[in-house]
């Protein structure tokens, strides 16, 4: 069926003031249009524009959430500014990321990177999470700088670097010295294991083994369960590095 923008006027109007418990069937035509827009770039652009417009003031939280879900599917660079504006807002930051994390545009990454430098607390962890989800190599320095910070953020940063596991990320993790926070230290070890695994997968056995050996040595003196878990994981990894009969 051809895209008929006028047919969506009323659903969009209802959507703007929608609250949980309202009649969601009223804007089901928007759902259908979003799915159908896959084969119609012009319709998709128009829909995106109309959706993004609703992210401003005067729209209910439930409606903004709905919009973010739809933009997570069809959003492009065009809707990034509207979404980015929500990133610092406690009530909307996650749903803005819900869309931005999926949008295939450099602008989306840039918006998340920028917010990483400005938002605080849990919202910052959210940015770290989404940048990791996108595998954003360029944000490695900014994330690595958080390794020595507050515990929860440092843990998230380590997790993220493990997820990104580019050579730079692995290097940043290896270079993280003087971390006294045990939770962060544990997360860094886990992330380094992830780095070694990626190297092993690439057939870089020697490099992987070097990480495992380093982890094994640094955990050797530890008596905590985490230190032992790291030692065991490193030992498992070293053995995997030596076993050239397995697929790599």
């Amino acid at each position: 069926m051809a895209y008929d923008p006028a047919s969506l006027d009323k659903p969009f109007e209802i959507l703007k003031a929608f609250d949980w418990g309202g009649d969601a069937s009223a804007f089901q035509p928007i759902d259908a249009a979003v799915v159908a827009a896959h084969a119609d770039p012009a319709a998709r652009a128009d829909l995106e524009k109309r959706l993004a417009t609703l992210l401003g003031a005067g729209t209910s939280r439930a409606a903004k959430e709905y919009v973010c879900r739809k933009l997570s599917l069809i959003g492009t660079a065009a809707s990034v500014p509207s979404l980015a504006a929500l990133l610092p807002e406690k009530d909307h930051s996650h749903m803005a990321r819900f869309a931005l994390e999926r949008i295939n545009a450099a602008e989306a990454t840039e918006a998340l990177r920028k917010a990483l430098g400005t938002v605080l607390g849990d919202l910052k962890i959210g940015m770290i999470s989404s940048l990791a989800g996108r595998g954003d190599a360029a944000s490695v320095p900014a994330i690595a700088a958080l390794l020595s910070g507050e515990s929860k953020t440092a843990v998230a940063a380590a997790d993220a670097l493990g997820r990104i596991h580019t050579p730079e990320a692995c290097q940043a993790l290896a270079a993280a010295g003087g971390i006294t926070d045990k939770a962060a230290g544990s997360a860094i070890a886990d992330a380094r294991l992830a780095c070694a695994e990626s190297l092993l997968r690439q057939g870089k056995r020697a490099e992987a083994k070097a990480i495992y050996t380093s982890l094994s040595e640094s955990a050797a003196a530890g008596t905590t369960p985490t230190a032992k878990a790291t030692r065991l994981a490193a030992a498992r990894g070293i053995l995997a590095c030596l076993d050239t009969t397995t697929t790599s």
């Binding site: 595998g135 695994e197 997968r201 995997a240």
Partner: peptide, 17 residues
């Protein structure tokens, strides 16, 4: 993103153990 994260994580299965 997929190549740099998911692929490598999945690959661990055939590699690490």
């Amino acid at each position: 993103r997929h190549r740099s994260t998911i692929v490598l994580m999945w690959a661990v299965l055939t590699c690490l153990s």
